Amino acid sequence: MGRPKRNLLATAEETLTPPDALSEGQSIARVIKAAGNNLYNAELPSAKAIMVEMPARFRSTIWIKRGSYVVVDTKALAERENKLDGEIVNVVRDEREWRKQSYWLVKLS
C-alpha cells in the first residue's frame, strides 16, 4: 500500500484546530443528511435548512456523518444561480476544542 499524499494529510490536520474567528458569511451548521454526490442538507443555528456542497479538497479525505458539525460559507456560491445555499469550508472533527471558541453559539446540540 502506498503512502498517502501530503496534501491529504494537510487537509486532515487543518480540520483539527478551530480558527480564531469566523469571517462574514460563515456559520457553524449541523449536517442533517446527505443529499447526493458531495451535497448535504444542513441546519443553521437559526433553524434554517440549507443545502451545501463539499469542495474537492475534502472529498475522499474527510467523511461527514449525519449530526456532525461543519463550517459553511453562505456567500461563497452567491454569484451562481442554483439550488445550493453555501459551501463547506471546514469540518468540525474535535468538537471539544471547537466548543471552547467564542463563536460557538450553536443552539442545535
Rank of each mutant, 00 (worst) to 15 (best):
M1S: 14
M1I: 11
M1A: 12
G2R: 10
R3S: 12
P4F: 07
K5F: 12
R6H: 08
R6W: 09
L8K: 15
L8R: 15
L8N: 15
L8A: 15
L9V: 12
A10Q: 13
A10C: 06
A10K: 14
E13F: 14
E13N: 14
E14H: 13
L16C: 09
L16W: 09
T17E: 13
P19N: 06
P19W: 01
P19C: 05
D20R: 13
A21F: 12
A21D: 09
L22F: 02
E24W: 10
G25M: 02
G25K: 06
G25A: 02
Q26T: 05
Q26D: 05
Q26F: 02
S27A: 14
A29L: 07
A29V: 08
R30T: 01
V31M: 02
V31G: 00
I32S: 04
I32W: 04
K33G: 00
A34N: 14
A35Q: 08
A35M: 07
G36Q: 04
G36M: 03
N37K: 11
N37M: 09
N37F: 07
L39Y: 10
L39N: 07
Y40S: 06
Y40F: 15
Y40W: 14
N41C: 08
N41S: 09
A42C: 14
E43R: 09
E43P: 01
E43F: 00
L44C: 06
P45N: 09
S46E: 08
S46I: 07
A47S: 12
A47W: 11
A47M: 09
A49F: 11
A49G: 07
M54N: 00
P55C: 05
P55H: 02
P55T: 01
P55Y: 02
R57S: 07
F58Q: 03
R59P: 02
R59N: 03
S60M: 12
T61S: 07
T61A: 11
I62V: 12
I62C: 07
I64Q: 01
I64S: 01
K65L: 10
R66T: 13
G67M: 02
S68L: 09
S68F: 10
Y69P: 04
V71I: 14
V71T: 05
V71A: 07
V72I: 13
V72L: 03
V72K: 04
D73M: 06
T74V: 13
R80H: 12
E81A: 11
K83I: 09
L84V: 11
L84C: 01
L84S: 06
D85T: 06
G86R: 04
G86D: 01
G86M: 00
G86E: 01
E87Q: 13
I88C: 03
V89A: 06
N90T: 10
N90V: 03
N90Q: 14
V91E: 02
V91K: 00
V91R: 02
V91L: 03
V92S: 04
D94G: 06
D94T: 08
D94S: 07
E95A: 08
E95M: 11
E95F: 07
R96Y: 09
R96W: 06
E97M: 11
E97T: 10
W98K: 02
R99T: 05
K100Y: 04
K100E: 10
K100C: 03
Q101M: 12
Q101P: 01
S102R: 12
Y103C: 06
L105Q: 14
L105S: 11
L105V: 10
V106T: 14
K107I: 06
K107V: 08
K107M: 05
L108E: 03
L108T: 04
S109D: 13
